Amino acid sequence: MPKKVDHEARRQEIAEALWRIASTRGLDGVSLRDVAAEADISLGRLQHYFRTKDEMLLFALRHINALADRRIRERIGALTSEPGQEPPPRAVLRECLRGMLPLDERSRVGTLVGAAYFARAIHDKRLREEAREGIPKLAEFFTGLLRSAQERGELAAGRAVDPHTEAMLLISLVDGLTAYTLLGVQTGEEALARLDAHLDRVFGDG
């Protein structure tokens, strides 16, 4: 019998080849042929899975995001030892924001792939709609956490916070911290310390 091919696993292998290229020389000018060589498959075989570079980037970005989401969920799940107990909103928010920063090699590569995709999306309406899709959902989730903290009296005394505005500010802050970390303006540890300093202003010192 012919060997059954796990097409999803093969797509993930191609995505990981793309990540390896991103980690060593970026993605500017990288072609499908380059990725095929890195994945040790023929160009024709690669094009069986991805017809264009944009399709490949989109899959790689979604796969990276899924892995990051899984890691964040696992860290949030580890915040409490009691089954069914909800961790504090600040702790959940911090883990989510921390997971968006390029603090290790894998998250750094994932961020580079995302940046390459977003740069192309600016000039492509279809790609731009895909890139924008997750932001409102993330902002809605953060807004819910901040509103819950507000109702529990956990925000800094005397600080008027609009949950949705603060949610968007936090997303924008992490985007800026990410860019400066990738550029080497600051280390990952410094980026995390600056994130914590902002959360201290929103929630108080603890």
Rank of each mutant, 00 (worst) to 15 (best):
R128S: 04
L101T: 12
R132F: 13
A60V: 00
R120A: 14
A39Y: 11
A121S: 07
T24C: 08
L97S: 12
L18P: 05
A78G: 09
R20C: 02
A22W: 04
I41L: 12
R98C: 12
G99L: 11
F50Q: 00
A91M: 01
L127T: 04
D40I: 03
E55M: 11
R126T: 11
L103V: 14
R94W: 15
A78Y: 05
S81R: 12
I76G: 02
M100Q: 15
F118V: 15
A131C: 01
S42A: 13
T52G: 02
Y49H: 12
A68R: 15
A37V: 03
E130K: 12
R25E: 07
L67S: 12
D104F: 00
L93R: 08
K125H: 10
S107W: 00
D40T: 07
E86A: 05
V109P: 04
E38T: 10
A66N: 06
R33G: 15
E8G: 07
I122C: 09
G114S: 03
R33A: 15
R51N: 07
L112H: 06
L57C: 00
K3F: 10
S107G: 03
M56P: 04
S31L: 10
E130D: 12
V109D: 13
A119P: 03
K53T: 08
H123N: 05
E129F: 08
A37T: 07
Q12C: 08
A17I: 03
Q12F: 08
I41M: 14
V35A: 04
E86F: 01
W19E: 14
R126L: 05
A119M: 07
